[in-house]
Structures are given as C-alpha cells and as structure tokens.
C-alpha cells in the first residue's frame, strides 16, 4: 500500500473532509462516553443544549469562543509562515497582566473612549514582547522556537503569579492572589445586555476578516506564505526572511496578547493565575481545525467553545468528567490532519 498525490481535488472532498474529521472525532469520544456508562447520543444532545439551550448558555458559548478566535488566529498566522509559536498561552497572560497593571492605576484617569483602545494596544504589545524572545533565539542562534516558546509559557504564568501576589495584588481580595481590577470605564461594552457577551466578539470576527484579506491580497501575506512553504526559495525570490518572520511574530504575539487583554476587559476585570483554561493551547487546535484559514478560525472556535461550554452542563447531569471536551477537541485535531492528508493523497495498492 502506498500513497499517491492527487492530481485534482474534488470540491466534495475539500468540503467533506473537515466534517468527516469532526464526525470521526465525535464517534471516538462517543466510545469513551459509552465506556463511562452514559448514553452517547443523549450526552451529545445535552452538550448542544448546554451550549445553546437558553439565551444565557448561547451568550456564554459566544463569550468563550472570543478568546479562542484570537488565540486561534495567533496560531494560524504564525503556522502559515512555519513559525511555531506555541507560546500563545504565555502571551495571553502577559497581555492580561499589562492591561491589569495599566488599567487599574496608571492610566485609569483617561476617559473610556481613549482608555479602551490604548489598553488593547498595550495588551497586544505585551504579547509581542514575549514572542520576540523565541524569535530572536531562532534568528540569532537557530534555536527551534517550539520548545522555547513553550517554556516561555511557564515563565509567563510565574511572572503573573509573582505580580498578582506582589505589587499588583488587590488588597481587598481577602488575601487571594488576585490583581487589582481595571477601572469600570475600561471594561468593554456589552454586546447583549444582561449577559457576559461583550464587543470583544465583534473585534475578533472583524480581525479574522482583516487577516484573511491581508493574507490573500497583500505583499506581506504573500511573503509570509512563501516563508512557510519554502524558506530558501523565498530568499531567492527576494523575500526578506527575517523581517517577514519578525512581522509575523508581532502579529501572532499581538493577537494572543490581545486575547488576554480582551478577556480581562470583557469578562473578569482582574487577573489570576487561572484566568485561562488553556486558551493558548486550544488556539493551536482551533487553527489546525480551520486548516489555518482565518475565517475558518471563527467556526473552529465556535465548535471548540460549544464542546467546552456544553460539556459543563452535560457533565453535571450525566456525571461524565468535563475532560471529555478536551479529549474530543484534541481528537478532532488529529482526525483533521489525517483528513487533510487524504484530500491531498490517495491510497494505491
């Protein structure tokens, strides 16, 4: 048995493959649910109800999808240029931390319409700073950025832990290590009243479309794709490789930092070391599920959010551990890369 490259790919295959991947992932998780002794279809029905059954749960799902879209975009733009930024988790935390630091004290005097955009930029800049270290190590010492950007995640969370228990600690938090809250007028406006859903969702969706445009219609988009497809070839074609990677890194780190900033300004108001339930890592899955397509990221983030929010409700009623959501999402990443492989290759005996 061997694999042979497909000369042409049918539309049905291209559209059907991602859906087939999700179905297979859900079927595999179904086996795990069955082993746990719960009715499988009923479990999935309850996941859907948990994610969309009421106005509250639907807005919760969209609120959860917002940071996932941004970290998903962060991974998608980086991976497209073969820049393996696995550090979105740490960049998310630094963005959140920067917003908490500037939004609670230093800049809290500014009026809301100025303060909010300034804080969003500060959050993005904080994320950028963190990715520039692995990037510099790659360009200067040719160190693979996968491990360095991963290790930066642990360092970033420790920095957060140190500051929320130190100079940023909220004295009114009954001794809990928690940062001071950002000023009330620094909080993002709500998108839907009486819910947690904030305009961060709109920002994420708009950014996805802007990035899609940049990637398909600008010189930078072409250069970043070229840098990913064939670095040597790109250099011969006149692509400034280091500068392109620098821009890609800034974009990627900035998006992840922005995700952290928006999570603080939209939902929590303050930072703790459990602000993120792995948004940075889930972003990698979101990007891969979308096949690195920025608009696809929106839908992949929704799928992931549905699984996470829905599994909470399902877990309470059926007694299946909520970790089933993480398992399903991770499995769908693996089935997706296999499905994408079979859109490019066919099996020959």
């Amino acid at each position: 048995m061997r694999f042979e490259r497909r000369e042409q790919r049918s539309l049905l295959l291209l559209v059907g493959a991602p859906f087939a991947a999700i179905v297979v992932a859900l079927a595999l998780s179904g086996i795990l649910i069955a082993i746990a002794g719960a009715p499988v279809l009923e479990a999935y029905r309850r996941i859907l109800i948990g994610a969309f059954g009421s106005r509250l749960s639907a807005t919760e799902t969209l609120t959860r999808a917002t940071p996932l879209m941004l970290t998903g975009l962060a991974a998608a733009v980086a991976f497209r240029a073969r820049l393996w930024n696995i550090g979105a988790e740490g960049q998310f935390y630094l963005g959140a931390l920067a917003v908490a630091a500037f939004g609670s004290q230093l800049l809290a005097g500014l009026p809301g319409p100025i303060l909010i955009p300034v804080l969003l930029v500060i959050g993005a800049l904080a994320g950028m700073v963190l990715i520039l270290i692995p990037l510099w190590l790659r360009l200067r010492f040719s160190v693979d950025e996968v491990v360095t950007s991963l290790l930066m995640n642990f360092i970033a969370v420790l920095i957060v832990s140190m500051l929320v228990d130190g100079i940023l600690k909220d004295p009114l938090a009954f001794g809990w290590p928690q940062s001071q809250s950002v000023a009330d007028h620094a909080m993002l406006p709500k998108l839907v009243s009486r819910s947690r859903l904030h305009i961060g969702l709109a920002i994420a969706v708009v950014l996805a479309f802007i990035i899609a445009f940049v990637q398909s219609r600008t010189v930078f988009g072409l250069q970043s794709r070229a840098a990913g497809l064939n670095p040597q070839g790109a250099v011969f074609a006149g692509v400034p490789l280091s500068r392109t990677l620098f821009k890609v890194a800034c974009l990627s780190g900035g998006l992840a930092g922005l995700a952290g900033a928006i999570e603080v300004m939209g939902v929590r108001g303050y930072v703790t070391t459990d602000l993120s339930p792995g948004f940075g890592y889930s972003g990698i899955v979101v990007a891969m599920l979308a096949n690195l397509n920025p608009v696809g990221v929106i839908f992949a983030a929704l799928f992931t959010a549905i699984m996470f929010v829905g599994a909470d409700g399902m877990s309470r009623s059926l007694g299946i551990p909520t970790y089933i959501a993480d398992v399903t999402v991770a499995l769908s990443l693996l089935t997706m890369v296999v499905a994408l492989f079979f859109t490019q290759y066919r099996v020959r005996r």
Partner: peptide, 10 residues
C-alpha cells in the same frame, strides 16, 4: 502537539 493534548486530556 496533538498527541500531547490528546494523551494529557485522556
């Protein structure tokens, strides 16, 4: 990365 995410959540 996929194997890591799957193995740890599993």
């Amino acid at each position: 990365l996929g194997v890591t995410l799957f193995a740890s959540s599993f």
